[in-house]
Design a protein around this nucleic acid. Structure first.
Lengths: 199, 199
DNA sequence: CTGTGAAAGTGTAGCGATTGCACTTATTTA
DNA sequence: TAAATAAGTGCAATCGCTACACTTTCACAG
């Protein structure tokens, strides 16, 4: 009985079903392409009904993103617990670069590159991923505002939050992510420093 | 025979059908809410078949955005033909603020405010509007690069383009658009000036 | 004029994602 | 062990959207 896995047989079976679905989805999507696979196919392949599939996942796109939940907390933590001397834009740049190399279902999965390509080449998935981040924009804005002692609805904090999550999309499609991130965040860095000398 | 309306009866009828659909859609959406109206309802109300509706509009959301076409040209022009002494971020801020007060189907329509509210309150429409702008991000990035003599795929130009169109969404949901735009673009302004002293 | 081909429009049938409903089965818990 | 709970099932239906085969209408050349 591991710490992360609550004992009950019921919960274990539930988790297993969910995992079967996620695995089936990833496998089929990689094999045939997202649009060439129906939710029915995924359900059949995982040996459950379509109804059950939708009890576990909010939609077809969600099948490949199994970990939305921690994103927000980590994002906020990246700002709040950044090392002393590091600016907020810097902290966000580092966090996003780090995340990019973890976003796979299993970090150890050799199909990681394929997964990333799948997401980038499928509009529906690309958009979904972007919205996943944008959903936490408000929380991030609030964290930034707190970090610099600005009012909670400060516009420039909201702007920095938005721009930072958008920068992710920009960086992803570039061959040299590190360099792209540096350039994109340099813009934010300088702009931010100008209005928040203490940030 | 006006300059804007090509003579042929055929083309006139086509334009009229399209207009009927757009009118019906706006009316019904405002009355019942976007999600409570089906494309069938719109088609019936405009007295055409559903098939015809989709011959005129690429999807349900497109029914309320009748003018995507000029957006890109205007966006590029805003950068290319900006008054001397005006920075690129400034030019984009002004352009977006201007656009925001024109985006109605008819600028003279008293229902303008309702329309804006509808779009902002309906996720599907908000997202669609955002994508409408994002679709022209590449063209804008290119125009910016040309304006400052940077390579066509320069990352900071792409970043400025993306941030500028994203700033729009930020500004829209604020009570004081002018002030919000000033703050959001101040960030870009300073960041941009730091790396492009000649921009 | 006229007839012919393109363009606009129609109705039906259907697909794929998603939901609601009534139901069975398995697990938990009192 | 029985009642309560939650997972899973199958089916029908909705909704956006497309394909198809068809009719009507207009433009234009002969």
């Amino acid at each position: 009985m591991r710490v992360t896995e609550p004992a009950g047989r019921r919960e274990r079976k539930k988790a297993q079903t969910r995992q079967s679905l996620a695995d089936a989805a990833l496998e089929l999507f990689l094999e045939r392409g997202y649009d060439q696979v129906g939710v029915k196919d995924v359900a059949d392949h995982a040996d459950v009904s379509v109804t059950t599939l939708f009890k576990h996942f909010s939609g077809k796109e969600a099948l490949v993103f199994d970990q939305d939940d921690d994103l927000e907390a980590e994002l906020v933590a990246a700002v709040r617990e950044r090392p002393p001397g590091q600016s907020i834009p810097q902290a966000l740049r580092e966090h996003l670069l780090l995340k990019q190399t973890q976003l796979a279902i299993h970090a150890t999965d050799p199909r990681f590159a394929d997964f990333t390509r799948l997401v980038q080449e499928t509009p529906a998935l690309r958009d979904y991923a972007q919205r996943m981040w944008t959903r936490h924009e408000a929380a991030l804005a609030k964290a930034i505002a707190e970090a610099v002692g600005a009012p909670e609805d400060d516009v420039s904090c909201a702007a920095l939050a938005r721009f930072a999550v958008e920068a992710r999309g920009l960086v992803l499609r570039h061959a040299e992510p590190r360099r792209a991130a540096d350039e994109a965040f340099a813009l934010l860095e300088h702009g931010w420093a100008a209005s928040h000398p203490n940030g």
